[in-house]
Amino acid sequence: MTGIVKWFNADKGFGFITPDDGSKDVFVHFSAIQNDGYKSLDEGQKVSFTIESGAKGPAAGNVTSL
């Protein structure tokens, strides 16, 4: 699925993605970002991701920028 990064705190390594389908915002951890180098996201960035079952509920996985 796709969405827009609502916010991401690079110091803490997590944030939230707002899915394009209008569903509830999804937690994203830096370890789910699939790019080389520094793993961070920018507010407003368009991303593709999967929904994984995290310890505290749904979380984004396999996050790639579009």
Rank of each mutant, 00 (worst) to 15 (best):
M1L: 12
M1P: 05
M1Q: 10
T2A: 05
G3K: 00
G3E: 00
G3W: 01
I4E: 05
V5D: 00
V5S: 01
K6R: 12
K6C: 10
K6I: 06
W7D: 01
W7M: 05
F8N: 00
F8S: 01
F8C: 02
N9L: 07
A10E: 07
A10N: 11
A10C: 14
D11G: 13
D11E: 14
D11N: 13
D11F: 15
K12C: 10
K12R: 13
K12H: 09
G13T: 02
F14I: 08
F14K: 02
G15F: 02
F16R: 03
F16W: 10
T18S: 11
T18P: 00
T18N: 05
P19Q: 03
P19H: 03
P19W: 04
P19I: 05
D21C: 09
D21H: 07
D21Q: 06
S23F: 06
D25Y: 04
D25I: 06
D25L: 07
V26T: 03
V26M: 05
F27I: 03
F27N: 01
F27Q: 02
H29S: 05
H29Q: 04
F30E: 06
F30S: 08
F30M: 09
F30G: 05
F30L: 07
S31A: 06
A32N: 08
I33N: 03
Q34Y: 08
Q34C: 13
Q34E: 09
N35C: 14
N35T: 14
G37F: 09
G37C: 13
Y38W: 14
Y38P: 12
Y38A: 12
K39H: 08
K39Y: 08
K39F: 09
S40P: 06
S40I: 13
S40Y: 13
D42Y: 15
D42N: 14
D42K: 15
G44M: 05
G44F: 05
G44V: 02
Q45G: 07
Q45F: 05
K46R: 14
V47K: 00
V47Q: 00
S48C: 12
F49E: 00
T50S: 10
I51C: 06
I51W: 08
E52L: 14
E52V: 15
S53K: 13
G54Y: 11
G54R: 09
A55P: 14
K56T: 10
G57F: 07
G57L: 06
P58D: 10
P58S: 09
P58I: 13
P58H: 10
P58C: 09
A59W: 13
A59G: 06
A59P: 02
G61A: 15
G61E: 10
G61C: 13
N62Y: 10
N62P: 02
V63M: 02
V63F: 02
T64Q: 13
T64C: 11
S65W: 13
L66R: 08
L66V: 11
